[in-house]
Design a protein around this nucleic acid. Structure first.
Lengths: 251, 251
DNA sequence: CGTAAAGTTGAATTCTTTCAAACACGGTGG
DNA sequence: CCACCGTGTTTGAAAGAATTCAACTTTACG
């Protein structure tokens, strides 16, 4: 269970952890942030390849990711897997319709992660005492839903190259929201099998499609590091519009 | 632009329109319901095959569907279409992360519909004055997201027969939440092309797959009416668990 | 009754998967 | 330090699933 990610470049660092930078709290007045801090129980460091929770299990915590990558996925009855999304720093995890029901998906860290843990009960208290925070959750959920819909479009109506291009750009843009200065090379901790389970293809076909994108000079993906070599061409391929997921609105 | 649905059996009726039965308001104390009623502007009847809004347009209204079917979909740059979900009575439409941004999808009625219209501005006023309603929106959004994730799993990791079985059961179950007594035959206003754009296949392949399910005696679909003939077999095929989308939780 | 939309079918093609086998790389232990 | 092992990547060949193209039939509706 050792980490595959010792090198710091593979971890999106957020050591300072200014709560204000996390999307969940963007736009919240300072007074309310203090409120949130009161309910926070602990900040936890979790090694790579660790499950936070499993589909079908009841789970009492809610998380805000400070640093690292988390993969959210569902398992089918036939054993196959579908990745729902990758959580990046600032993302809020494990909120679902019925907080007491078993989790409808699993969450596994891809890299070492630091996360802030909120017990569900605290979350519920917090919402009842400070209902304005509920609107924030509604927005976060709406944003996550919009992202999921983009994935659905991709898997439902695009071919292999287009899906791969879309995934790359989607991740690329989300990383740039947090680290505007990373440039064209970003960490990319997923395996080709993870990618396959994200875009609805097989591992083998992802590999071949990747080769094709590489040969055309669009991207370079090796050693868990992705370089965007021809952004315009990739963007054209993916049918991707960057404004898809900007940030929080104002009430 | 005439309605394809004159026959009442094709419309899920909800003539009484008891606001309390709609999922958005389930579990809300009576006092709060009166609040909601204050902000409601009008109840509107909209004919079949009409767009409520188009992707890319700014739109100032929010809707609660009282009766009828609405199809929500996205259009790709290459002209193809991906259906995101079908809205049924009680569903809440056109809420998105940034209420002022252009709509990220389109909505078109499949049947004649009655809907309650809330201007966005009223919605915002309502949330700031009665923030407990925001939590309700968060739950609705989380539920819609969970449904979208099931679609993603279906399109990403199931074959044609499984996807079709899933779609049928998903609709079947949601209809039964509103009309527990409809039995095994339900209205099904979508064309085969709509179905294809929902489950990520072509019209032709949907037709062949449908024939195969029919020949195996699992379903009958004709004249926009769907009959589930072998529920256990379909359920097994779809890998479907009925609890997926039950109703609202309690705070 | 005529027309447009929706449904049906066959044949050929393309895309994707499956199966199988190598290869590369990092980490571990001798 | 090197051999070994497991995980992840790469490639080929054959099979399978889904699409495309094209034509035809049926249904809905004015």
């Amino acid at each position: 269970m050792a980490s595959h990610f010792k090198k710091p470049t593979h971890i999106i660092s957020c050591n300072i952890c200014p709560v204000r930078q996390l999307s969940m709290y963007k736009g919240i007045p300072d007074g309310q942030l203090d409120i949130v801090q009161q309910y926070r129980t602990e900040q936890r460091i979790i090694p790579a390849k660790t499950h936070l929770y499993h589909q079908g299990e009841r789970h009492n915590n809610t998380y805000t990711l400070f640093s690292g990558w988390v993969m959210l996925y569902k398992t089918l009855s036939n054993g196959s897997r579908q990745v729902l999304r990758y959580a990046l720093p600032g993302d809020f995890l494990s909120f679902q319709q019925n907080l007491d029901a078993p989790m409808n998906h699993s969450a596994q860290t891809l890299t070492d992660c630091t996360m802030c843990v909120f017990p569900r009960q605290h979350l519920i208290d917090m919402f009842s005492k400070h209902p304005q925070l509920a609107m924030q959750i509604a927005w976060i959920t709406a944003r996550d839903m919009a992202l999921g819909q983009e994935y659905l479009v991709s898997v439902g109506r695009k071919n292999a190259k287009e899906r791969l291009a879309f995934l790359f750009l989607e991740i690329y843009h989300r990383i740039h929201l947090h680290l505007p200065d990373v440039g064209n090379t970003i960490p990319f901790p997923m395996t080709q099998e993870d990618i396959a389970d994200t875009i609805g293809l097989t591992l083998v076909h992802v590999n071949r499609t990747l080769r094709s994108l590489r040969q055309e000079g669009l991207v370079k993906l090796a050693h868990h590091s992705l370089t965007i070599l021809n952004y315009p061409a990739l963007s054209e391929l993916a049918g991707y519009n960057a404004e898809m997921l900007t940030n929080q609105p104002l009430l």
